[in-house]
Every structure is written in C-alpha cells, then in structure tokens.
Nucleic acid binder design. Sequence first.
DNA 1: AGGTGTAGAGTAAACGTTTACTCAGATAAG
DNA 2: CTTATCTGAGTAAACGTTTACTCTACACCT
Lengths: 338, 338
Amino acid sequence: MNQRKVSIKEIAELSGVSVATVSRVINNNGRFSEETRKKVLQVIKDTHYETNNIAKSLRMKKSNTIGILVPDISNSFFANVVQEIESILFKKGYSTIICNTDRNEEKEEAYLRMLEGKMIDGLIVISGVKEFGSTAINKKTPLICIDRKPKDTKSTILIESDHYQGGFLATEELISKGCHNIAIIIHRDFLSSSKERLLGYQNALKKYQIPFKEENVIHVTVEEKMSRTEAAKAALLQKISEGYQFDGVFALNDRLAIGAIHAILDLGKKVPEDIKVVGFDNDPISKYCYPCLTTIRQDNMLIAEQACENLLALIDGTRKDMKKHQVIPVTLVSRAST
Amino acid sequence: MNQRKVSIKEIAELSGVSVATVSRVINNNGRFSEETRKKVLQVIKDTHYETNNIAKSLRMKKSNTIGILVPDISNSFFANVVQEIESILFKKGYSTIICNTDRNEEKEEAYLRMLEGKMIDGLIVISGVKEFGSTAINKKTPLICIDRKPKDTKSTILIESDHYQGGFLATEELISKGCHNIAIIIHRDFLSSSKERLLGYQNALKKYQIPFKEENVIHVTVEEKMSRTEAAKAALLQKISEGYQFDGVFALNDRLAIGAIHAILDLGKKVPEDIKVVGFDNDPISKYCYPCLTTIRQDNMLIAEQACENLLALIDGTRKDMKKHQVIPVTLVSRAST
DNA sequence: AGGTGTAGAGTAAACGTTTACTCAGATAAG
DNA sequence: CTTATCTGAGTAAACGTTTACTCTACACCT
C-alpha cells in the first residue's frame, strides 16, 4: 500500500477536468457543477489525496501556522500555557510550532529565523532571555508577548499575570497569619514579573505598617546542574547561618518555596507553626509537597485565551482597539504551609 | 525599518547576477568567482535576506522538519523526552513540530494529516491512543515509536524503557523491605508498558515465592476532570473499606502513588512504617512529596538520543541494521517511602 | 591555427497550489 | 432575432527556490 504522493494534477487527469477545477472543488470556491464535484471528490477519496500545504503556503503567503517561543517547556507554568494555546489554535485551524529556547539567546535567534522562513502567520513569545527581540521586532509578523515584553517597543501586546497583586496577596496572607518578619526569595530579579512581585510585597508591608528591610530580600542564583530548589535551600541556610531571623517566607516561585521549606525542616523547625511559607505559580508540586504549599495561582487558561484571541485579531487585521498591556488577575490558594 | 520581505530575485538584481548564481553562493555549491561571492553576500547582509524555507521545501521535497506526537505535554515524562528530542534535533539542523494529541484519536489523525502536508522528513510518536496508526502506517515517512507501537506493523522501530525490569525492581524493593502483601495500582491496563510492569511485579513475587493474588490488582479509571492522584486515592479507599489488607503498594506511576500515600495517611497509617509505597517515572513530584517517593527512573535522555539517532539514520537511509525493538534500562531511586 | 578543457554564469523548468482572465454555450430579455 | 447575463470550466501566471543544461570566453596543448 505504499502509494506515492498524489498531486492535484493527477486528480485532475483522473477526473477528466483541469487542475483549476479540482482546486475550486477542494476549497469550495468558484463555480462548478454538482456532477463535477462528486466525481472529483470520489477520485480524491480513492487516491487518498492530501493537499500539500507547503505549496499552498507558498502560493497563499500564509501557512496557518503559529510559532511559539518558550524558555523551558518542562516548567509547569509554561507547559500549561503552551498546551492551552496549542489546543485553542488547533480548534481554529492553526498548527503550532513549539520552540524550546532554553533561555538561550542564540537558540532564540535561530528559531526566530527558522520560523520566519516557514512563513508563520503569527508569533507568541513567552518570557525568555534578558533582552528579547533584537531580530523579531522589525518584522511585521503579528506578535504577542506573554509575561515579558521586548526591550524597546511600545507596539507589541503584552499579556501577563498581575504579579503585583500576587506579591501583595502572598504577603498579606503571611501577615494575616501573624508573620512580622517576612523573607522574600528572588531568583531572576531582572524580570519585570519579579520586580512587580517584590513591589506587591513591599506595598503589603506598608499597608500593615511593617517596615521593609533590605536584609529580608534573599537573591538566589542557580548554578548549572543545580535545581532552583537546591539553590534556594542553600541560600537560605547560608543566610540563617549568618544569624538571620524570620517568621515567614514569600518565595517568588514554588520551586524556591520548596527549597525554603526543606531548609527550615532541616533545621528542626516546623512549617507552618514556626515559619510560614508562600510560593507562586500553583505548580502541581505545591499540592503534593509536604506540607502542602500555599501559593499564588496564575490563570493559565485565561492567559492562553487572551493570547490567542489577540493574535488572531492581529492576523485578521480586525479589532484595532486592543489594549497593549493586559493584566490577568491571580488568586491565592491557601494550603497547609500557612 | 519595516522592510518588505526580500527574495532571491531581488538579491540577484541588486548584485547584478542571476538568481541561479545567488542560490549557488548561498548554498556554496556549484561554481562562482570569489568576487561574485563577496558581492552577493554583501547584498544579502544589507537587505537582511532570509531564505524562504517554504519554497525551498517545495522544491527540495524536504522540509528539515520532524513532527512529534505526544499525548500530553504537561506530563513530566513526556515533557522531558520531548524537550530532549527537540534539543538534539535542533543541533542537527532540524526543527520540531510538537503536537499535543490529548490522547484524542481525531486530533491525532488531524495532526498526522497536517504534518504530512508539511512534508515532514520524519515522525516520532509517543504513546497516545489505544489503536494508533491507522493513517500513519501506510505512509513512507520515517517513523519511530516511543513507548507504544502501532497495532499491526512489524516494520516500525519501537524504543521503550524496560518496563518489565521496572516492575520487577519496584516489587523487589518492597519485598526486600519486608512487604508480603503488595497491592499494584494500574491505570491504563491496555498499554503494553502497563502489562510489562505487571509482569515484572508477578515475576518478582514468584522469585521470592510469594503467591500472586488477583485481589491485589487495583484498576483505577480516571474520570473527566479528576486527577490520577484523586482517582487512585478514591479507588484505594474504596477497596480498603471493603476490608482489603496490604503492607505495600506498587503504583504504575508517581501520580497514582501519591494518591495511594494520601489514602494511607488519611486512614491514620504511616508511610513507610505501616505501608511502603513505590511509584514509577521519577516525576519531579516524587522528590518533593511527603514522604519522598521511591520510584523507578526512566532514562529520558537515552530514550531521546536513541529515537533521534534512529530517525536520522532512517532519513539518511544509512544503517539498515537497526534493531526493531530497543529497550532502555531503568533504575530504582530509593527514597523515604520504602 | 585549431582543438580541448574549464571556470563562471545564465536560462528555464520544476515543485504543487491558487486565482485572475478568458471563453463557449446556454438561457433570458428586449 | 439580437443582445445581455450567467454558468461551468480551462489557461497560464505566480509564489521563491534549486539545478540540469547551455553558453561564452579564456587558457592550454599539439
């Protein structure tokens, strides 16, 4: 059954019409008789013809393909959003090329070029490297950014969670549970999301008249071949060994939070009795770790929906009135760690 | 700077040569003088020309693209393998289209058609629906299966973990820690991997002269909108309420294992003191749950490498001697739950 | 001088579609 | 009966590449 690939031309010959007519039947546009329609469709069925989208794309200058750049597909937040986006776009007849950039600038550039060469109709970029966008910006491919905006354009649309609110809610939760001296663990401090979360933290403190202390800010850097969890644990232990005291921790993501918990447990203290912990992301592990982690849930579904909706609108050229910056609310998920 | 897309033709005009020559320079094949080379390259640089891969693919009947079908990208095992594959292929100059099938047969078919239309050079399929392959098989696209083989062909290459060994190791671990009555929790019993793991379990029992009892096999079915963890927990609780007794659990994946642990803890028993638990997959959660989960680690990296290597060999047509069935060893990761 | 080889580069076809034109014949209107 | 309208369908160009053929001019032999 190893049939050779069959083209529209052969369909035309077999059904005794011209290629143009076949094309018209396939796309159901233009004029043809009912009789011809049936005949062509029958031949198509018999030959297992599949339209060659490469040729179609070339001719139409449209590939029905969306590219999506993601820093790390094994990160649960990204994986979720991407999966959702893929699913939505699929329903709209688009296929998605998922590119995993590893937060590597070269790889990002290479992918961008590759996607451009594939005539993608649109591009969704999630976060990634420090200075995204050198290449992508000048192109006129419709572009939506999630979580992180390219450096120097005001023109692209940015969709992100309300990181400020997240930081605020997390901190407020700790305060309401009696914490007065709250550490904040930060990983990638150059990300605008991190900055916003920090700001939320600071403003929550202010609201409850707790002074902000620089010593409460713990920056962790993750070495090669080390997990965020391990790095956070090490950083916190180090700080504690220097005499640092605290009664609550707000970690900027769940992996860091788990690291903090491990450090605390290692020292024989209890969570939440002695020290309370809040994370960010609602990573599946937050539900299964011990103790279960209070965290901030990002609305992945809504982020994905907004991204797709906006992108498709850009592609169609309809709806010029889109907001350049769309902020998606977050919610607190209260669990055992507070 | 919103420059229009520039084609080889314009490069030709600008540098005063023919398109053929430009093509030859770009691909560095055929003959041209050093002088022409420089001129053309300069124009290319000036105009920011990018080659149109759609056109190239059409002409060459080769897209340098690999399709990959994955049932659920948010599953950590799949995500890991896919990420690794993507990374390897990228280095080899291929781009990867990742298709998330949601274990949905229609979606799988649709994607297969889409990929075919994109003239992919090869296809990697990970597990998925019950009866994979109706469409894909007849095509002559090079195909590698991971974890699950299409129904009726002997021809495709299958790469999978040594599920039998995994089942054996897991069970042996429990026995060596003193378990005599070991429950096994199975989710998708029709998967060959599940069957193999079960077989490993049975043979480990046999080796230690422990009789296999049908009542120890717990099948869980996961309803819509319910996690595997919840389903496993419910199933186990149900069974226990019927008077079921046991001192060890081997769950066919980590999510199920966590469900079992939750059920056990809920009943006031202790893990591992009263009942020991082993999972499968070495999902990140196994490291962070409470207590940490002993599990079977699949060698994602090696699986990915084998898959890519074999696929590329198929594409090149080199190396005809590949084994049709390649089994990757697994290892036991011993943690607190045993 | 005549012949041969070769370096450099152009011409045009082909890949599989879509679609603007065109056209013949049929039907309707005057 | 002439003219206008419409229906069904074919012709050929175009999308941006690659490459098998050609062709010219020049160098190198006899």
